[in-house]
Design a binder for these strands. Structure first.
Lengths: 153, 153
DNA sequence: TATTGTTATACTCTATAACTATA
DNA sequence: TATAGTTATAGAGTATAACAATA
C-alpha cells in the first residue's frame, strides 16, 4: 500500500494505529496480570511507588495522567488487596502518602516479569534498531508535548 | 540484547510507553470529536463503514478487535443518533448489516479532519522519516501478530 | 447443533463536580 | 479562600454468558 497523502485516509492516521496496537498490547497484558488479581492501571501505580517509596495521591495523578479522584479509587482497591497503605502526613493534616506494603513490594518483580514477557510477545520480532527507534520516538512525543506535566483536574 | 537485561525497569517497557502516549492521543481526540456528539470507538466504526458501504456486525467485530456484543451496543448508540441503520439480510434471517445514514456519511469528513488535526498536534514535530518509521513499525506489529484476525469472542 | 446477533450483568477506567478537612 | 483528598454520579468500553431466531 502506497504511503497516502490523502488526509481523510484513516489508514494513514498514526493515532489510529497507535490506539489499535496499544489496545491489543494492554489487553494481552491485562490477561496476564489478572492471574495475580491486579489490573494494568494498578500495576502502573505500584511501579511508580517502587521507585519513590511513598508518594502523595496528587503526585501520582500528575505522573499517571489521571485525576485525583481516579487515583483515590485505584488506591482503595489496592488497599483492599493489602498491597498498599495510606498514611496521614503528620506535618499537613490534609496530606496523605501512599506506599507499598511488603506484600505489594514483593509482587512487583512478578508483575515486571509479566511485562517483560508481554513486551517480548509483541516486539521481539522487531529488530533491535526498530525497537530502539520506537522507544525513542515515543519518549520524544512525551517530551515535546510535555505529557508528564498536564493539568488533568 | 541490552534493553531486556534490565528486566524490571519499567521505563524500558515499550508496552508502557505505547499505552501512555496512546492514551493521551486518544483522550485529546475524544475531546475533539465529542463536539460532534460521538466517541472515538464510534468514529472508528463509522470509518470502517465508509469504505465498505455495509457490513455485518460480526465483520466489524473482527476488524475492530471487539466482541459482537460490544459492536451491538456501539451500533445502538449510533442508530439512536441517526448516524447508522440496521438492515435485515433478506437471504439469511439471522444476519444483519450496518450502514451509514446520509447524515452519518456527511459527518465522516468532519471527523477525519479532526483526526488529521490531532495527528498534527502530536506527531508534527517528528521528522517525516520518524513518522514513516513509526507507522511502518506499528503496521509490522499488526501483521506479525495477526492482530486483525483474532478470535475475540 | 451451529451460527448470528442481541441482551443481561458486571467491572474497570475515566471525568466532573460536590464535599470534607485543613491551611 | 485555597489546597489535598475523597466521594458521588455518570457514562464509555469491555468481557462473559445467557438468550432468541434461524440455518
Amino acid at each position: 500500500m502506497p504511503s497516502s497523502s490523502t488526509a481523510s485516509d484513516l489508514t494513514s492516521h498514526l493515532g489510529y494505529w497507535l490506539r489499535y496496537v496499544s489496545n491489543h498490547v494492554s489487553q494481552a497484558f491485562a490477561r496476564k496480570v489478572e492471574v495475580h488479581g491486579v489490573t494494568v492501571a494498578e500495576w502502573v501505580l505500584m511501579r511508580q511507588l517502587l521507585d519513590s517509596e511513598a508518594l502523595a495521591p496528587s503526585r501520582l495523578a500528575e505522573r499517571m495522567g489521571m485525576t485525583r479522584g481516579a487515583i483515590s479509587r485505584l488506591a482503595d482497591r489496592l488497599i483492599a488487596k493489602s498491597l498498599l497503605v495510606r498514611v496521614a502526613d503528620p506535618q499537613d493534616g490534609r496530606a496523605q502518602t501512599l506506599s507499598l506494603t511488603p506484600a505489594g513490594r514483593a509482587l512487583v518483580p512478578e508483575l515486571a516479569a509479566l511485562a517483560d514477557a508481554n513486551d517480548a510477545e509483541f516486539f521481539d520480532h522487531l529488530t533491535s534498531k526498530e525497537r530502539a527507534a520506537l522507544l525513542r520516538t515515543l519518549r520524544e512525543i512525551v517530551d515535546q508535548r510535555g505529557l508528564g506535566s498536564m493539568p488533568i483536574d
